[in-house]
C-alpha cells in the first residue's frame, strides 16, 4: 500500500464548551476513496473544516502530503480540493465565470486556466449551459458546479462533504459515477456521507463517526466482520401498497432487529434472513400487501452502525 497522503492524530475541535470532534485518528492512503460515514451532527463537516485549514483545531495534529495542516496552511490548500456540503458559488455569475474566479484563486491563469475550465465543464456535463448564470440552474446542476470548482486545480486530495444531499436520484448517480472516475484517474478522495449505500459503493476504507468519535475504521470487509452474523433482508413492496404498515408489523416478529422503509423497499436486519422469510410473507398476505421481490444481503455498513451504536444511521 502507498504512503498516507493524510494523517490525523487525536484531532480535537471544540466550539466553545461543546466538543464536536473528540480526538479522532485516521489516515488516508494515496489513491484510495476513504469515507467518513456518520449521522447528521456526528462531526463530519467539522473534521473537514479543520483539515481544510478553515477552522483551527483545538488539539491533535494533521498532515497532508507531509505538510502540517496547522503550520503550513497555504501549502496544504494548494494540495487539496474542497467540495463543501453547502453550495458555495456566486449565483449571479455564470458557471464559467465561477470556475474562472475560483481557478484564479487556485493560482491558475491564462491558457492552463482556460483549458481546465473547459475540461471541468465537460466533466460535470455543463458545457452547453456554461454561460448561464448559476441562479438559473437546477439544484443538481448547482451541485455539479460546486464539485467542479473543487476539481479545477487537479488536487491530489479531494474533500467531498455530503455532495449528494438533497438532489434527485439521477444527479446522485452521476455524482457517484464521477467520484469513481476521478479516483480511477488517480485522485485520492475523502468522502463524507450519512448514506450507508454511498459509503458502501465508493469506499476502499470507511471510518464510522458518531458524536465526534471514530467508532470503527477499516475496509468494508473488516467492518462487516465486526457485526457478527447479522444479515439484511430487502423486500420490494408494490407501488400501490403502504410499506410502513408491513414494516411496523415486522418489527414485532422475533429475530427482526430492525425494519426500515425507504421509498417502496423495506430493509430488515436479522441474524437469520432465511428464517424470517415465511413469517414475512404470511404477514404481507394478512395485510393484503404485495411483495414484488425478496433479496438477502450480506452484512452491510448499516448493520455495522446498528451493531456499534444500537441506532439507525439515518434517524
Amino acid at each position: 500500500m502507498m504512503a498516507p497522503i493524510l494523517e490525523v492524530q487525536n484531532l480535537v475541535k471544540k466550539y466553545g464548551d461543546f466538543t464536536a470532534v473528540k480526538g479522532i485518528s485516521f489516515d488516508i492512503k494515496e489513491g484510495e476513496i476513504f469515507s467518513l460515514l456518520g449521522p447528521n451532527g456526528a462531526g463530519k463537516t467539522t473534521t473537514i473544516s479543520v483539515l481544510s485549514t478553515l477552522y483551527t483545531a483545538t488539539g491533535g495534529s494533521a498532515t497532508i502530503g507531509g505538510h502540517s495542516v496547522f503550520a503550513e496552511p497555504m501549502t496544504v490548500r494548494q494540495i487539496i480540493g474542497i467540495v463543501p456540503q453547502e453550495l458555495a458559488l456566486y449565483d449571479d455569475l455564470t458557471a464559467r465565470e465561477n470556475l474562472s474566479f475560483w481557478g484564479q484563486m487556485y493560482n491558475l491563469s491564462g491558457k492552463t486556466l482556460a483549458t481546465r475550465i473547459n475540461e471541468v465543464l465537460e466533466q460535470i456535463g455543463l458545457t452547453d449551459k456554461a454561460n448561464q448564470r448559476v441562479k438559473t440552474y437546477s439544484g443538481g446542476m448547482k451541485r455539479r458546479v460546486n464539485i467542479g470548482v473543487g476539481l479545477l486545480h487537479r488536487p491530489r486530495l479531494l474533500f467531498m462533504d455530503e455532495p449528494t444531499v438533497g438532489i434527485d436520484p439521477q444527479s446522485r448517480r452521476a455524482i457517484l459515477d464521477s467520484v469513481k472516475e476521478l479516483n480511477r484517474q488517480g485522485m485520492t478522495v475523502l468522502y463524507t456521507t450519512h448514506y450507508m449505500e454511498e459509503a458502501q459503493e465508493l469506499s476502499d476504507r470507511v471510518g464510522i463517526i458518531d458524536h465526534g468519535e471514530l467508532i470503527a475504521l477499516g475496509t468494508q470487509a473488516e467492518l462487516k466482520s465486526q457485526v457478527g452474523q447479522n444479515e439484511t433482508l430487502v423486500l420490494a413492496v408494490a407501488e400501490t401498497d403502504d410499506p410502513q404498515i408491513l414494516a411496523d408489523k415486522l418489527k414485532t416478529v422475533p429475530g427482526v432487529l430492525k425494519a426500515d422503509v425507504i421509498d417502496h423497499t423495506i430493509t430488515t436486519i436479522t441474524p437469520d434472513a432465511q428464517g424470517i422469510i415465511s413469517p414475512t410473507i404470511l404477514l404481507a398476505n394478512q395485510l393484503g400487501i404485495k411483495i414484488n421481490a425478496i433479496d438477502i444481503q450480506e452484512p452491510n455498513l448499516e448493520a455495522v452502525f446498528l451493531h456499534l451504536t444500537g441506532r439507525a444511521l439515518r434517524d
Partner: peptide
C-alpha cells in the same frame, strides 16, 4: 453565510 467566504479561506489566499 453563503459559504463563499469560507470557501475562499480554503484556497491559497490569505
Amino acid at each position: 453565510r453563503l459559504g463563499t467566504l469560507p470557501r475562499l479561506l480554503t484556497t491559497p489566499v490569505n
